[in-house]
Design a protein around this nucleic acid. Structure first.
Length: 494
RNA sequence: GGGCCGUUAGCUCAGCUGGUAGAGCAGCUGACUCUUAAUCAGCGGGUCGCAGGUUCGAAUCCUGCACGGCUCACCA
């Protein structure tokens, strides 16, 4: 085997490992129970000055990874990082006696436990004067550079564990992600919602229009799809008598990858019986402002070049008004042909044979959506684009639906749920037609779901929120891969 | 899938119109008991993503491929 430079660095560390073993030191020893997290040390002792610390003679033990090492021969300083932060530690020969010789076997990246007295250095930095230390895990691979960290995006995603060690802001993002989900759950539970789990393996890929992943069950000799949405199962629960339910979990869509799309992504869907989409808009405002306040400390959040203001109420306007506002001429709303012509003239790609609704939707995505920066509800969509939503009484060609846009992104999609089994069957049949005409993404008929509606579903409102996109917004990340710990990548070559 | 861009030491990056690869950090050796990206002296480290081609000569130009980024398409 040929010796690469990296292999040489690893060899050097293996040699230290060997030397430690020869000295009777276990480089991967077991339990070490630190008395404090690094952050505790700062929160508890920040106000004590040099003399006060001296007097109190505080003993502390911490465990973590060495991320910086400054060796002085008969003394050494290091930075030890744990899950909550980092602290400086100070080794001195006169204090450690024989054990001091082991300091030269410490590499950047090693996990050690230390114990000692807290003191302040000449420059007033809170530091642990090490009385004793234990090797907990010897690191065999060099960490990225202390100053620039790990920048290579590919390496950051493939070796997220390294990214998390050396880039503190990445860690913060994922802590915030958990906070967002926690407060989301907390809010819904306080509002009387029941969290449920519905299948991720479906025999029919329904509840959305997307290409599913296929899988296979051996024992049942049956093809299955990874779910593209939990919607149809959650509504079955409304039929069953649960009046407020939600599910947080992965959806899977076999589609392109982009800064806004990962093949598996996290959604929340929640359903409320006896309410409609108007109620839901207000509820959404409360929900979001609750989370944002808790997670960000206030309602104004920086996102890229924008400051998003989550203070309710959010602007509401109908899909058609939104288009009119962008000077889409009246005749475009009349028929598909005129609309297509206008769109093409504007340089908007329209698939041939697109219906009027479809064309308007395309125009919307192109000219309106990117400019919806502050939270905005777009309401009243054409029924054709919304096969699971309830029609508006006074305008049955529209449905009671809204989508929430923030920073030019769709964050939430919601509607008054269609609970008329006959209308629902008709709309499914229409999709079945589309499927027969070659539209692979048009869902199949879900007879069991119709059966459930026939048993009777209470009137209800339901909403889905893309958690990843919400996390992007609240953590100021421009790519979905930066809010997913292990985004999907092709395997590394060779 | 299309377009554009990128891939050089463990990490971060230089490397001009082609002349045979450099820095900082990390590493190793030595000095140093209050440093803060410690400092000082010395040393080692590269199939320049892969495969072809052009050329006397390729990290550099051309083609193909791989992986990644952005973007378009796709995405109720």
């Amino acid at each position: 085997m040929q010796e690469t430079p990296l292999a040489e660095l690893i060899q050097q560390r293996l040699k230290k490992l060997e030397n430690l073993k020869n000295l009777g030191v276990d480089p991967y020893s077991g339990i070490f129970t630190p008395s404090l997290k690094t952050s505790d040390i700062f929160s508890q002792y920040a106000d004590l000055d040099k003399e006060a610390l001296e007097e109190k003679d505080i003993n502390a033990s911490v465990a973590g990874r060495i991320i910086l090492l400054r060796d002085f021969g008969k003394a050494a300083f290091a930075h030890l990082q744990d899950s909550k932060g980092k602290i400086q530690i100070y080794f001195r020969k006169d204090l450690l006696a024989d054990k001091f010789q082991l300091v030269k076997y410490i590499d950047i990246g090693d996990i050690i436990g230390v114990e000692g007295r807290l003191f302040r250095t000449k420059t007033n930095e809170l530091t642990i004067e090490v009385k004793d230390f234990t090797f907990l895990s010897k690191s065999l691979r060099p960490l990225p550079e202390k100053w620039h960290g790990l920048k290579d995006v590919e390496a950051r995603y493939r070796q997220r564990y390294v990214d998390l060690i050396v880039n503190p802001s990445v860690k913060e993002t994922f802590i915030k992600r958990q906070q967002i989900i926690k407060y989301l759950r907390e809010f819904l539970e306080n509002e009387g919602f029941l969290e449920v789990e519905t299948p991720m393996m479906h025999t029919i890929a329904g509840g959305a229009r997307a290409k599913p992943f296929k899988t296979y069950h051996e024992a049942l000799d049956m093809e299955l799809y990874l779910r593209i949405a939990p919607e149809l199962y959650l509504k079955r629960l409304l039929v069953g008598g649960f009046e407020r339910v939600f599910e947080i979990g992965k959806n899977f869509r076999n589609e392109g990858i982009s800064t806004k799309h990962n093949p598996e992504f996290t959604m929340i869907e929640f359903y409320v019986a006896y309410k409609d989409y108007l109620w839901l808009m207000e509820f959404t405002e409360k929900l979001l402002s609750y989370i944002v306040e808790k997670v960000c400390g206030n309602l104004r959040v920086k996102f890229g070049e924008y400051t998003i203001d989550f203070t309710p109420p959010y602007r509401r306007l109908t899909l058609y008004d939104a288009l009119r506002e962008k000077n889409v001429p009246a005749d475009v709303f009349g028929d598909a042909e005129a609309a297509t012509k206008w769109a093409l003239k504007k340089g908007i790609d329209i698939p041939k044979g697109a219906t009027l609704s479809k064309v308007l939707d395309e125009i919307f995505k192109e000219i309106v959506e990117p400019e919806l920066i502050q939270p905005t509800f777009i309401i009243d969509y054409p029924v054709e684009l919304s096969p699971l939503a309830k029609r508006k009484k006074e305008q049955p060609e529209l449905v009671e639906r809204f989508e929430l846009f923030i920073a030019g992104r769709e964050i939430a999609n919601a509607f008054s749920e269609l609970n008329d089994p006959i209308d629902q069957r008709d709309r499914f049949l229409k999709q079945v037609q589309e499927r027969l005409q070659g539209d692979e993404e048009a869902p199949e008929m879900d007879e069991d779901f119709i059966k459930a509606l026939e048993v009777g579903m209470p009137p209800a409102a339901g909403e889905g929120i893309g958690i990843d996109r919400l996390v992007m917004l609240l953590t100021d990340n421009q790519s979905i891969r930066d809010v997913i710990l292990f985004p999907l990548l092709r395997p590394e070559p060779k």
